[in-house]
Design a protein around this nucleic acid. Structure first.
Length: 462
DNA sequence: AAACAGACCAACCGCAACTAT
DNA sequence: GATAGTTGCGGTTGGTCTGTT
């Protein structure tokens, strides 16, 4: 790999540590500079000494006012860098290491619903940072796309497929009746408050899919309880970060809001029928070992012919999947029939295809408004995507009534998305009840075609 | 053992929103 | 209401690690 000459921009961590440790070195030099010229802030990797300084600062003054860190501590880092370092690495209760299968599924679900809203996704993954999730998703997505595999696991694909159907149905004057499950997604209204009134909530998907009483408790509803910590007082305002591994997930994105447990009722099913079994444990370090295989094994099991072919499993399909092919086709037809586009709503396709991460999930984030203005091409794309996303073992899922789109009244017109999140912690709730995938366990073949994928390693789920 | 490629991770940048004055 | 400062977010880049050839 190319080694950038710019790598020598800063001294090595060891050197920096030494300098900082003896109290001279860089700091002293910079002090001299400070008198003659503006402070030259350092970039690049943080040293442990810098970390210690930052931690000490936060211990004394708490979080926030990051630009004061340099003034108060002499740390030659900009406030932005300090905040980032704290948030991503020094914050208490950060969970390091690989994502557990539960987390991976949740990330996929969240991405399907939110798109590249890493911070909001991180709010549902205690101890994880947006950066971490972003990195994970990007590398994973890149890998899967290169292998010609669908980005989302089967269940999420199904959700997306159904949501596409819902998209069109939403514009039918025959609004679907309110569903019991829809109550769980009321909170989503606020989440979508950042979208203009002309655009249905991006998470209407969740509402639309709030069709099942099966509830998967992804995140524990246990109230927050801060462990005793010498830092407890200074960090009181940041209490959401003081969580035990199994404590309630609270939204770090709501620092100014009241602390209360976030209970995203993500009943996403994932093919789990049993109520008991479907109740996944709260996110926590999973006992399931990470078994991901080297990426170069993707191609072996699945030649990148087409995603559709992949979805149907091709010749590698087990018998029961062949049997389901017919029902799949039927369902596709049903879905196709269900798609009714208001010609008046036709408009040039938007740039969804160009969205990073591709896939249908990105569409969902803003599937209202302009996305509803479908032209033929877009519709075709949707159908193509639909086929692409179809899963082979899909037992024709029950056609589910849809909650009325009108149940999303809270389109304030504000353009501030995360502000609404901050103001209302409940908006972190993704009270999503999603239909379980077909009764038969969703195939490992279309997602974990080669057994590589984490999803397939979750015996209860796949 | 060396070269290479891909994966992973940390950090930076630019922008937008928010807040205080 | 205008402005400056602060904070948060998402995209991107670059370095390091690891596996393969």
């Amino acid at each position: 790999m190319e080694r950038s000459p710019g790598a020598a921009l800063t001294s090595s961590p060891e050197e920096e540590e030494e300098k900082a440790a003896d109290g001279h070195g860089e700091e002293a030099v910079e002090q001299e500079d400070e008198e003659a010229a503006p402070v030259v802030l350092k970039k690049g990797p943080w040293t442990t000494a810098e970390d210690a300084m930052l931690v000490d600062h936060v211990r004394r003054h708490g979080e926030g006012n990051w630009n004061a860190v340099q003034r108060l501590t002499g740390l030659l880092r900009c406030g932005k860098s300090c905040r980032l370092r704290w948030t991503n690495h020094l914050r208490p209760n950060l969970k390091k290491g690989s994502f557990s299968p539960d987390e991976e599924i949740l990330i996929a679900q969240l991405h399907a619903q939110l798109g590249n809203k890493w911070a909001r996704m991180a709010a549902h993954l205690p101890g994880r940072t947006d950066n971490e999730i972003k990195n994970y998703w990007n590398t994973r997505t890149k890998r899967r796309q290169r292998a010609g595999l669908p980005v989302y696991p089967p269940e999420v694909q199904l959700q997306l497929a159904l949501s596409k159907r819902c998209r069109y149905d939403d514009f039918s004057p025959l609004a679907s009746p309110q569903l019991p499950g829809a109550a769980n997604v009321q909170a989503l209204d606020a989440t979508s408050a950042g979208y203009t009134s002309s655009r249905p909530a991006p998470l209407d998907l969740a509402r639309q899919l709030a069709v099942t009483s099966q509830t998967v408790q992804f995140l524990s509803p246990q109230p927050f309880s801060a462990p005793s910590s010498p830092w407890a007082k200074p960090f009181a305002r940041n209490a959401q970060y003081f969580q035990f591994a199994h404590s309630s997930p609270v939204s770090p994105s709501t620092p100014t809001g009241p602390l209360h447990p976030v209970t995203p009722d993500l009943s996403l099913g994932y093919g789990v029928r049993s109520t008991d079994q479907s109740r996944l444990a709260p996110l926590s370090p999973s006992p399931v070992p990470r078994v991901e295989l080297p990426s170069n094994q993707f191609g072996q099991a699945m030649p990148p012919t087409s995603a559709a072919a992949a979805g149907l499993g091709g010749a590698a399909l087990p018998d029961h999947q062949h049997q389901n092919a017919a029902s799949l086709e039927k369902m596709l037809q049903e879905l196709h029939d269900a798609i009714k586009v208001d010609p008046s709503a036709l408009a040039p396709a938007n740039g969804d295809a160009a969205r990073p991460g591709g896939g249908g999930g990105a569409v969902l984030e803003r599937h209202g408004g302009r996305e509803n203005q479908l032209d033929g091409q877009h519709r075709d794309d949707d159908m193509g995507t639909l086929f692409d996303m179809m899963i082979p073992t899909l037992d024709a899922p029950e056609t589910v009534p849809l909650p009325p789109a009108a149940a999303a009244p809270n389109h304030s017109g504000s353009t501030s998305q995360h502000s609404s999140d901050d103001q209302d912690p409940s908006t972190a709730d993704l009270g999503v009840d999603l239909p379980a995938a077909g009764g038969a366990s969703p195939s490992d073949q279309d997602w974990g075609l080669d057994g590589v994928c984490q999803w397939s390693s979750m015996s209860r789920i796949c």
